[in-house]
Design a protein around this nucleic acid. Structure first.
Length: 594
DNA sequence: GGTGTCTGCCCC
DNA sequence: ATTCTGC
DNA sequence: GCAGAATGGGCAGACACC
């Protein structure tokens, strides 16, 4: 299929927000594709070129796309940048720029899906010195031969998202409708999803059902070494909600670490992250520890990988384990510095038997027969919770142990493992949801970043900070980009119009350069989970750690503008330092002898 | 060799 | 991760 | 309630550049 035809389909889809219409148009396109195109198209629709677990990435984002557009169009990079800022979308930015191109290409070859996909693969595979230039050349070449509309979608694919309202679920809907017509609609959809959840490869599914319908995917099954899409938890607003939704439940500590899916076979062990990235190389200690704790022949299990202090065995902040994720060098050394404990919480497969459709307690029992606990492989702390008093106590114990909160899991027959689903069979209830424990801050708005997509034309995020009364300065502590509704967002540029200045006010200390600077005046209420040591924010710079400041983890707008507060009444640097010390103390105190 | 910027369907 | 919105 | 799309802090790696 010509890329131009593909682009026209996408443009039509972009013209509606109605789910049913999107799905129907997507199905129509699937019908028109060749069998060896549909898998590629599925990846492209999701802004990628391979399934997640393959681990080959494009390594392209806004910055490189802008440079390529500059080369392809002959326009200065500053101009392209300006267009992007105004459009708020790399796609329409590319479209505009290509339309402005000085002359239409004389020797342009029409683009096809095949050619674009092939180029993207070349881009993903190129590494080493000069690879950036090579990537730029390939991208610029595509833009050179692209019509404006094609450029729109090429740019968005490169940036990783077409922003059409299409994700895996919509693709499955369309595939079911178009290629499994003979079956009852809901049954077809469910079967398809079951298969997808086991192979985690949407392209394979699409290709197979286009070629042979249901027959094409009947042989897909759970397989050791092929990651299964992770089941997720919904959030509960209160403890009461846990009981309202499931009566009694299995409570588990919610550990603040890295989620790991372990595939154990006779010959080897593979580890996968929540998004199915291969983590095997990064955690040789976990492999060894699993091997010595395992009592079965083979299996698939899930757990949370938590950093621990090698001397005291207490759990360390999430930041520590993230030093091990993605590491390629110094693995052995870091392994000794930051040992981890794996807290196992689920069993999906054990010795020839699938457990996905078993209830929670059956899976837990299988898990407990499959392992003996060792120093660094343990079961997640679990207790059946029947009433509020028990729940309160369990929650408090979890916090004292250094956890984020608790998980509540449905113990009924319906409480199966649903790969890829975020339902209400699992609920999370975190410390930060409790209003008495919530750290609410009053922060001064210092600047803003231009919004993208649905936030084009307004701000995407605010740059906020605290007041330092000793120096009479404002120091950045976090950006703030969530918690705003559409009405608030649309009014924001007006709200800050009179405060907008050309450059950073002298009393603002910032390493970041927002798109707009403001005179410090407006105060917002912000909720966060905790404070972290920050390499980029300047709040309390150098006090807790040399060359570092303090930031807020998971910041969000509470909906309250503190118009009653002057900027000098905002949360101060000193207060943040105290809060950070208190947080440390909480961690230190929890392991003291009674 | 050191530094700065960019990237990740990254992790959370 | 959190949050908001259209269906 | 689901699915999708906005957005956060912070980590290591990979390059480009000096």
């Amino acid at each position: 299929m010509n890329f131009a035809v593909f682009s026209e389909y996408l443009e039509r889809i972009e013209g509606t927000t109605k789910r049913l219409e999107i799905t129907a148009m997507l199905g129509e396109m699937f019908n028109a594709l060749a069998p060896d195109e549909i898998d590629k198209v599925c990846y492209l629709l999701l802004g990628k070129i391979y399934p997640d677990f393959v681990g080959i990435e494009l390594g392209i984002a806004d910055a490189l796309i802008q440079r390529a557009l500059s080369i392809a169009s002959g326009l200065k990079i500053e101009i392209v940048s300006e267009v992007l800022k105004n459009e708020g979308d790399i796609g329409t930015c590319a479209e505009n720029v290509i339309r402005q191109k000085k002359q239409t290409a004389l020797f342009s070859e029409p683009l096809t899906i095949e050619r674009v996909y092939g180029n993207l693969c070349k881009i993903a595979e190129s590494t080493g010195s000069g690879s950036q230039d090579y990537k730029l050349k390939l991208i610029a070449e595509m833009f050179h031969d692209a019509q404006p509309l094609e450029a729109r979608y090429i740019a968005r694919i490169l940036a990783g998202s077409l922003r059409l309202g299409i994700a895996e679920s919509t693709i499955l809907d369309a595939l079911a409708i178009v290629f499994l017509k003979d079956m009852e609609k809901n049954v077809a959809r469910e079967l398809l999803e079951d298969k997808y959840n086991l192979c985690s490869d949407i392209g394979l599914i699409a290709k197979s059902v286009k070629a042979q319908g249901m027959k094409g995917i009947e042989n897909i099954g759970l397989k050791i070494g092929v990651p299964i899409r992770a089941m997720l938890a919904s959030r509960a607003a209160s403890m009461e909600e846990l009981f309202d939704r499931m009566g009694k439940f299995a409570g588990e500590y919610k550990y603040d670490g890295l989620r790991i899916q372990a595939h154990i076979s006779n010959s080897d062990i593979k580890l996968y992250s929540r998004r199915l990235e291969n983590l095997t190389e990064q955690f040789p200690d976990v492999i060894r520890n699993l091997r010595s704790a395992f009592r079965g022949r083979e299996g698939i299990f899930e757990g949370e990988c938590v950093p621990i202090d090698p001397d005291t065995d207490e759990m360390l902040p999430f930041q520590e384990v993230s030093k091990r994720r993605g590491r390629k060098y110094g693995i052995e050394e870091t392994m000794k510095q930051i040992p981890v404990c794996l807290f196992l919480f689920d069993c999906l497969y054990l010795d020839g038997r699938e457990y996905l459709k078993n209830s929670y307690l059956e899976r837990r029992k299988a898990l407990e027969t499959a392992f003996v606990e060792t120093e660094h492989v343990k079961f997640s702390h679990m207790k059946i919770i029947e009433d509020m008093a028990e729940c309160e106590q369990f929650f408090n114990e979890a916090i004292s142990a250094g956890c984020e909160g608790i998980m509540a899991k449905n113990t009924g027959p319906e409480g199966v493992y649903k790969p890829g689903k975020r339902g209400f069979l699992w609920l999370k209830y975190k410390r930060e949801y409790k209003s008495e424990l919530a750290d609410t801050l009053d922060l001064v708005v210092l600047g803003a970043f231009a919004g993208k997509g649905r936030r084009a034309g307004t701000y995407g995020a605010l740059l906020t900070g605290v007041y330092n009364p000793e120096k009479d300065t404002y120091e950045t502590i976090c950006k703030l980009g969530t918690g705003f509704d559409d009405a608030t967002l649309s009014q924001m540029p007006q709200k800050f119009a009179t405060l907008t200045v050309k450059s950073r006010p002298k009393n603002v200390i910032s390493k970041m350069e927002p798109d707009f600077w403001f005179v410090p005046m407006v105060v917002v209420e912000v909720q966060g989970a905790e404070l972290t040591i920050s390499p980029v924010h300047t709040c309390g710079y150098g006090i807790m750690k040399e060359g570092a400041g303090i930031a807020v983890r998971f910041p969000r707008f509470t909906g309250r503008w503190r118009d009653d507060k002057a900027p000098t009444d905002a949360t101060t640097t000193g207060e943040i330092i105290e809060m950070y010390k208190k947080q440390l103390k909480r961690i230190e105190e929890r392991d003291l002898p009674e």
